[in-house]
């Protein structure tokens, strides 16, 4: 069972995410976005969407840093004060995004207009995200100094996955809550192309360098021109 969850599921999830995203982009670029509901309800969205997005982006970057620069994290956490600050910040961000997520869930379920634009997959996604955030916060509270033991367990596990030689030993001995967190992450990854999460792939950074006006000649050839 744990072989399937930690040695097979990750690859299935990655396959689903990559193939699924490419398929969806090619089949229907039109659907490659999140369906914003701000037009139907704006005030509550602010208190949900802003904490959620800024929280989750920072936390995800934190997880990534642990995988990519484990030695840096080890050195950083060598000094207890820095470890406390890191753990405290991460916990605060965790609560921030939990708060955001709860606001979003309450908002979606209590407003008739929003229920009219909520799909079944949206509900599934919200549930999975709540599970993921809840598990993550549980780990942070019950199994402290995660940023330290993460680089000794999850990091080598992820690298073993990347090297196509999965070593499940790193994670099988971890507490249940951690396992739930890991497996649920793979489930979210697998579902990625089939949910509104695809909007993560359309971060419009190119806008920062684009000229203001977009002028299109003919039907295919695209040129931008400064016309501001």
């Amino acid at each position: 069972m744990s072989d399937f969850l930690f040695a097979v599921l990750p690859y299935l999830a990655a396959l689903s995410a990559i193939v699924g995203s490419i398929w969806r982009y090619r089949a229907s670029q039109f659907s490659f976005s999140s369906v914003s509901s701000q037009f139907l309800e704006s005030r509550q969205l602010f208190w949900g969407s802003v904490p959620w997005h800024y929280g989750i982006i920072t936390i995800l970057i934190g997880h990534l840093v642990g995988v990519v620069f484990p030695s840096g994290v080890k050195v950083f956490n060598g000094e207890p004060v820095r470890l406390y600050i890191l753990e405290g910040t991460a916990l605060a961000l965790g609560f921030l995004l939990l708060l955001g997520l709860l606001v979003l869930i309450v908002r979606r379920s209590s407003n008739a207009r929003l229920r009219a634009v909520t799909s079944g997959m949206d509900a599934v996604l919200l549930f999975l995200l709540l599970l993921q955030v809840g598990a993550g916060l549980g780990i942070a509270i019950y199994y402290r100094w995660g940023s330290s033991w993460y680089v000794h367990t999850a990091t080598p596990y992820f690298w073993s996955l990347f090297k196509l030689q999965p070593q499940t030993d790193y994670v099988t001995s971890l507490p249940l809550l951690v396992k739930v967190h890991i497996v649920n992450a793979f489930v979210l990854l697998a579902l990625f192309p089939f949910t509104r999460l695809v909007h993560m792939l359309s971060v419009p950074l190119a806008y920062l360098w684009r000229s203001y006006q977009v002028v299109v000649w003919g039907q295919r050839q695209i040129t931008s021109r400064r016309g501001q």
Binding site: P204, Y207, Q228
Partner: peptide, 20 residues
């Protein structure tokens, strides 16, 4: 418009002005 603001503020470059 000749200097459309809707085009200028779109991060995804979705609105555009047909040159012809």
């Amino acid at each position: 418009c000749l200097n459309p603001a809707c085009v200028a503020v779109c991060p995804s470059s979705a609105p555009y002005k047909r040159a012809e």
